[in-house]
Amino acid sequence: MTTTKTNKIIFWTSTILIFLFEGVMPALTSQTELAKEGIRHLGYPEYFGNALVVFKILGVIILVVPQIPKRLKEWAYAGFTFDFLFASISHYAVDGLDFQTFFPLIVLAILMVSYVFYHKINSNNLNS
């Protein structure tokens, strides 16, 4: 298997995982009582959770649609990075050190794989 093909497989696998975790899952579950209680538990108002879901859905669309300009993709990656870091900090501040503190950092690691391989693919396309 060629390096370019491997890079594309790694990129799309990690990006699809982000799409599922940050786009599909929030879109389907954001209005459940459990999700609303999760936002309240962290001390945020309900409208913050709604806005977060809108931006997550827009962000994953930006990441998965190839025709979106690279500058917007960079902003989406940055936005998700802040989201995961602040989610981890929020959970730590409210609940202390537990799995909910580390889970956003695990998803951040997947996002970083997507980001690194996004750039590998694009640098290969420039050199071809």
Results as ranks from 00 to 15, higher is better:
E37H: 09
T2A: 07
Q100C: 04
T2R: 06
Y47E: 03
Q31H: 03
F80K: 08
V60G: 10
P69C: 10
I89Q: 01
I89C: 00
K5Y: 09
L52V: 00
Q100I: 04
V94I: 05
I110P: 13
H119I: 11
H91Y: 03
V113T: 15
K73F: 12
I121F: 05
F48L: 06
L34R: 08
G59R: 04
F117G: 05
F102L: 04
Y118L: 14
D83V: 00
L105M: 02
I121N: 15
A76M: 14
V107H: 02
V53W: 01
N122F: 14
V113N: 12
W75V: 13
L63M: 15
E33W: 00
S114T: 15
K56H: 04
H41T: 05
N124A: 15
N7Y: 06
F103E: 10
V65Q: 10
L108N: 06
I110W: 13
K70H: 14
K56F: 02
G59A: 07
F48R: 01
T32P: 05
S114G: 15
E22M: 15
G96F: 04
E22D: 14
M112C: 08
A35G: 02
I10F: 05
L28V: 11
G38D: 00
K70F: 08
I62D: 14
A76W: 13
L28C: 09
S14N: 09
T32N: 04
T3M: 10
L85N: 07
F102C: 01
N127M: 09
F102I: 01
L111H: 14
M1N: 03
D98Y: 03
S14L: 02
Q67T: 13
N7T: 07
Y92S: 00
F80M: 12
M112F: 11
I68S: 12
H41V: 01
L34E: 08
D95N: 12
Q67R: 15
L126S: 13
L85W: 03
T2Y: 04
Y44D: 03
Y77H: 11
Y118K: 13
P26V: 08
F103K: 09
V113Q: 11
T15L: 11
L126N: 13
S88A: 09
S14I: 06
G43W: 00
W12T: 12
L34S: 05
